[in-house]
Nucleic acid binder design. Structure first.
Length: 786
DNA sequence: CAGTGAGCGAGCTTCCGCTTGACTT
């Protein structure tokens, strides 16, 4: 068809059938399955939402939501509206869950469709059969389900938009609270409390290495089930072992099996990618999106472990081909997650016979992980033989135990083993045992009593937090990653490292008839990239715990979900449910607003020995700070912000007082005063209106004039080295070495140097010329908003 | 890029869930 008759072509091609789905990638796939009479378009998710600038709900008149076409969906809606007006039949094929039903309903409204004429269809997997079946069984929009979504949406809005302003007033501006994020923060704060309050105790664990008579190379690793509380007890046990006889008194063999983990959901994919590949959850999702859009995997935001029949048979075929029929075990998994809506399949390769794909490295790795997990989920159980050997000690009650484990059939273990969040188990004793018979005498190589300490619960990683959230039923596959970003953006929690501390422990060894004692050191408590609450997070959590415990109750979401289900079933009226919730909630908001004081987490640290004034630490308008003196007195108190590595929790009076000593003069240099001060970006030295940041290892309180001069000179030297070209005629124009390579600086503007140009040989004229080419203009930074 | 914090008040901030780009570094 030529360009001659564009209008004719448009009318002539007007589609009979318009199908609307949520995702454009899905639209492309489905279009292939349907004939020429079908045009498949995407809504790009929700098209309508409440306004952002106000509450957007008519609370007085039955909580009616004031929906508007979302700003970034104006074009989508206009486009769809045009096509819809030309189509004979509209098929709404959004996901089969609460949100999907609402999207369909919003489409009816936004596109001004006839609700009676519209055909609502659903499918859980994207296969030709599933889609043809769906087309043959259309239904109408389920208004109960839509109402359940409305209740969900309005409840979240009311909670978020009434709690947040209360925080602005009582704690600090621009904070936020919500049904999901506030619970996520609570989990992290409470975990940190558990760690802080954890009392470490130690006991002595006894392990031994034996060998059977005449087989000195064979090792039987055994452990005493009992632990000794004191070193004396442990020692006396070892003494009794000196010269004792060891004999096998029982051998118990029992078969065991291990089963594979179910296929990936969003949450388990995030966990495994974190454990095995070290990906943060947002990164995992970005790579997964890339794989999905390239057609390599199914949809990546899902809470379902279900696989389509087509996938099951593809898996079976692949496993048979690679390892034989013995390795096949077709399994149908059921979702156990709270509140799962299962609108999609599990995350799996689109073509399971493709073991690898060609892409960039992270995508290939993630694909491989998905492939292995999917394949393993359809493989046979691993069979093991576990052996427990009891070893008697002559003249003693205690018995050693040796545990052996032998894989008799590897099954799914050939492909994949699920990772774990737990600490590595140090009881690696005896995976393989030499052949033994009852009554065999054993000889000890060594018996060791090692002091072991109880360990505090582990801090959350992004992924283990997602796991916990899923268990509690808070958040959805599409929101896990964004929620984790939000609580970090609000500075409620930070991904931080905690340095490991050295700890001494005792070890008693019995070998060659002698007991020796040694003190060893181990590193403990170190943590990398774990989620740690900030002072702000801790204080906001205390506020919410004090006044809104029911909202951040771990069961709140699960409870309201039950109500939403009843609305979806038509057993409950949606706005009555909201009325019941909102009445008491809003009263509590009003009451707290009026009666509670500022909530700053204020703590009295003590008195300044020089002035006798009180020293406080608390959250201020700009974050954690210390205060010297009282606000009630005539003389204004002094304030100072905490350093980045200090916390309200554990700052000492001494540290607090040191903060008031800034800005501090250090003497003169080149006739100008040097001062050291604490700034927004950390401690710095100021001299002649220039700033010199302190290094990490510098203690701001202990900085001397000499050290300050060193810093000044070092920076001057560095500055000098940055200059590639300078021009006498025009001091404004310079060629500099930057973080990303050489560039031209003119006044305050920077310009790129075109490829292939040697920066060393640029003349002033060259520079001016380059700066005039719009190609080399500095790129405008996108505004932070949106 | 480099001081602020009480209180007064203007005007700003904020939720969860569904989707993909724009934009850099």
């Amino acid at each position: 068809m030529g360009d001659k008759f564009p209008i004719f072509v448009l009318i002539g091609m007007a589609t009979k059938n318009l199908v609307i789905v949520e995702s454009p990638a899905k639209a492309r796939t489905i279009e292939r399955f349907l004939g020429n009479d079908f045009l498949v378009k995407s809504s790009f998710g929700h098209v309508m939402d409440l306004s952002e600038s106000d509450i957007g709900v008519d609370i007085e008149n039955g909580f009616i939501p004031q929906y508007k076409v979302a700003k970034d969906k104006k074009n989508v809606v206009a486009d769809l509206k045009k096509i819809a007006s030309e189509a004979e039949t509209i098929w709404l094929a959004t996901d089969e869950d609460r949100e999907g039903e609402a999207i369909s309903w919003h489409l009816v409204n936004a596109l001004e469709l006839d609700e009676q004429a519209v055909k609502r269809i659903v499918f859980h997997e994207i296969t030709k059969t599933a889609i043809t079946e769906a087309i043959s069984a259309p239904r109408s929009i389920d208004r109960n389900l839509v109402n359940a979504q409305t209740a969900r949406r309005v409840l979240d809005r009311l909670v978020g938009y009434e709690l947040s302003p209360l925080l602005w007033k009582k704690v600090k501006p621009a904070l936020s609270a919500g049904r999901v994020q506030s619970v996520a923060v609570r989990l992290i704060v409470e975990r940190e409390d558990e760690i802080k309050n954890f009392e470490t105790t130690s006991s002595y664990r006894v392990t031994a290495k034996f060998f059977p008579e005449g087989k000195e190379d064979a090792v039987v690793s055994a452990e005493l089930p009992k632990r000794f509380q004191t070193k004396e007890e442990a020692k006396s046990f070892l003494e009794k072992c000196t010269g004792a006889e060891f004999r096998v008194s029982a051998i118990e063999k029992k078969p065991a099996k291990k089963s594979p983990a179910p296929p990936f959901t969003t949450s388990t994919l995030q966990q495994e990618a974190s454990r095995k590949l070290g990906f943060p959850v947002a990164y995992t999702m970005r790579i997964a999106q890339q794989l999905y859009e390239s057609g390599y995997i199914t949809y990546m935001r899902t809470d379902s472990v279900n696989l389509s029949n087509m996938a099951l048979s593809m898996a079976k075929e692949t496993i048979t081909k690679n390892w034989g029929a013995d390795y096949v075990k077709t399994r149908k998994y059921r979702t156990s997650a709270k509140g799962a809506q299962e609108a999609h399949e599990a995350i799996r390769p689109t073509f399971i016979n493709n073991e690898t794909i060609e892409s960039d490295k992270p995508a290939m790795k993630l694909y491989e992980l998905i492939w292995k997990r999917t394949i393993a989920s359809q493989m046979a159980d691993a069979r093991l033989e576990k052996t427990n050997v009891t070893i008697d000690i002559s003249g003693q009650q205690e018995k050693f135990m040796a545990k052996g484990e032998v894989v008799t059939f590897d099954g799914f273990l050939k492909v994949y083993i699920e990772g774990s969040d737990e600490r590595k188990d140090e009881n690696g004793n005896g995976l393989m045992l030499p052949p033994l018979t009852n009554g065999d005498q054993l000889f000890s190589k060594s018996i060791m009593a090692t002091q072991r300490f109880t360990q505090h619960p582990l801090r959350y990683t992004e992924a283990s937090l997602v796991k916990k959230m899923e268990e509690l039923g808070i958040g959805r596959p599409s929101t896990y990653a964004p929620t984790i970003s939000t609580i970090q953006k609000r500075e409620y929690v930070k991904k931080n490292d905690r340095p490991a501390l050295e700890r001494e422990y005792a070890r008693l060894t019995l070998a060659g008839g002698q007991i020796s004692e040694k003190t060893e050191t181990e590193k403990v408590g170190g943590d990398k990239g774990k989620l740690i609450p900030t002072d702000l997070g801790t204080v906001v959590n205390s506020f919410l715990m004090q006044y809104f415990k029911d909202i951040i109750d771990y069961n709140f979401t699960a409870d309201v979900e039950k109500e939403f289900d009843r609305i979806a079933n038509g057993q409950k009226v949606w706005n009555e449910m909201l009325e019941n919730f909102y009445g008491p909630f809003h009263d509590k908001i009003k009451d707290t607003q009026e009666t509670s004081k500022k909530f700053s987490g204020e703590k009295l640290l003590g008195q300044d020995p020089k002035t006798g004034k009180n020293v406080y630490v608390k959250i201020g308008k700009y974050g954690p700070m210390v205060q010297l003196g009282d606000t009630s007195t005539e003389e204004k108190p002094r304030f100072a912000g905490l350093n980045k590595d200090q916390s309200i929790n554990d700052i000492t009076l001494e540290d607090a007082l040191a903060l008031f000593s800034f800005p501090k003069p250090l003497g003169d240099y080149e006739g100008k005063e040097i001062i050291v001060a604490l700034g927004k970006f950390g401690p710095y030295v100021k001299h002649n209106n220039a700033f010199f940041a302190l290094e990490k290892t510098d203690d701001p309180s202990g900085i001397t004039r000499e050290r300050a001069i060193e810093l000044i000179e070092a920076k001057r030297e560095e500055e000098k080295n940055r200059i590639i070209r300078e021009f006498e005629e025009n001091k404004d124009v310079r060629v500099l070495r930057g973080r990303y390579g050489p560039y031209i600086s003119i006044g305050k503007k920077n310009f790129k140097i075109p490829k292939g140009t040697d920066p060393e040989s640029l003349t002033l004229e060259d520079c001016i010329k380059i700066s005039e080419d719009p190609k080399n203009e500095p790129k405008k930074r996108r505004s932070k908003k949106s």
